[in-house]
Design a binder for these strands. Structure first.
Length: 302
DNA sequence: CTTACGGCCTGGGTGC
DNA sequence: TGCACCCAGGCCGTAA
């Protein structure tokens, strides 16, 4: 892929989870703040909570920051309307919140660039570039949340996996009777972990995905928290996992897929014990694990 | 209240 | 060559 100057590309192809979204956000944060949105154009809009609000509210706002909330991208927008009084009445701040779903991509490129198929949303910027949203399957989501309602929005989300402390982690997960894999995937418990990093974290901490969280010992819970932190940190450093054609701002693929120990390695041998990696359905999701390194629950409990 | 599960959304890839 | 089917993550409704 050829990447021309001024043609910044931040996209995540298959299954963007916390590390992929973080990589995209870092790219956007280096490129978007300071830019003003001039215009919004929409193609298919069934993934937008309130399509007409995009055109009504966004043109004329200035991007001040780009942050990540779990798997959500948050583009912070300041109104440019001049304050009426000498002391600026707090300008209404809006947050453009984007979830990439499974196939969502955000790109920033010259408006004259060819448009990729399945591009459904165009934000024209004041420097001749466009922020574009492309999503083959439209499992993504886009919504505007005023600053006054951000607390409510965040109320639906759990804690950041890289910020939660050991005591909180043990309390929030260890008190639950659900299977641990289901809890790791539950965005109301922890925000940002998806199937890849749940499986990799469970393998690293040697916990079977179907283990009941409540039955885990404190040492196991602490090991799991550490594994989650180490896996996510390493994945961010390697700019995420590229399953197909994910590339970062410099056109580079993520590299963490080369570190996968169990995810999509069904039938292959475990790097740790040479046993065969298995795949089972837990919490309705494919779960990859090593039966020898991650002993099944209550198979041999007292 | 908590947990489990099935179905729905969509379309690329797969296998027949 | 065509085409039925599988699967992915989040969400919702329903059941236990």
């Amino acid at each position: 892929m050829i990447v021309r100057p001024g043609c910044a590309i931040f996209l995540a192809a298959t299954m963007p989870e916390l590390p992929e979204v973080e990589t995209v956000v870092r790219g956007l944060r280096a490129s978007l703040p300071g830019r003003t949105i001039l215009d919004v154009r929409l193609g298919k809009s069934d993934f937008v909570d309130d399509p007409s609000a995009l055109g009504d509210c966004l043109p004329g706002t200035r991007i001040s920051d780009v942050t990540r909330l779990g798997k959500f991208i948050c583009i912070v927008l300041e109104s440019l309307e001049k304050s009426l009084g000498p002391e600026s009445i707090s300008a209404p701040r809006l947050n453009l919140i984007i979830h990439l779903g499974m196939t969502g991509q955000l790109t920033v490129r010259p408006a004259s660039d060819p448009v990729a198929p399945h591009t459904h949303c165009f934000f024209a910027l004041d420097d001749g570039r466009e922020l574009r949203y492309t999503d083959i399957r439209r499992f993504g989501r886009m919504l505007i949340v005023p600053e006054s309602r951000m607390a409510e929005f965040l109320g639906h989300l759990g804690k950041e996996p890289l910020q939660i402390g050991p005591d909180e982690f043990c309390r929030d997960l260890g008190s639950r009777r659900a299977r641990i894999k289901a809890l790791l995937l539950d965005q109301r418990v922890l925000r940002g972990i998806g199937n890849i990093y749940a499986d990799e974290s469970l393998f690293r901490s040697r916990i079977h995905p179907a283990q009941i969280a409540e039955n885990l010992g404190k040492k196991q819970l602490l090991a799991l928290r550490r594994a989650v932190r180490e896996i996510l940190t390493a994945a961010i450093r390697l700019r995420g996992s590229s399953i197909s054609d994910y590339v970062d701002a410099n056109g580079k693929r993520g590299e963490f897929q080369q570190r996968h120990r169990v995810y999509q390695r069904t039938g292959k041998s475990c790097f740790r014990c040479r046993g065969k990696i298995r795949r089972v359905i837990v919490a309705g999701r494919s779960s990859h694990f090593c039966p020898r390194c991650q002993p099944a629950p209550r198979s041999r409990e007292k």
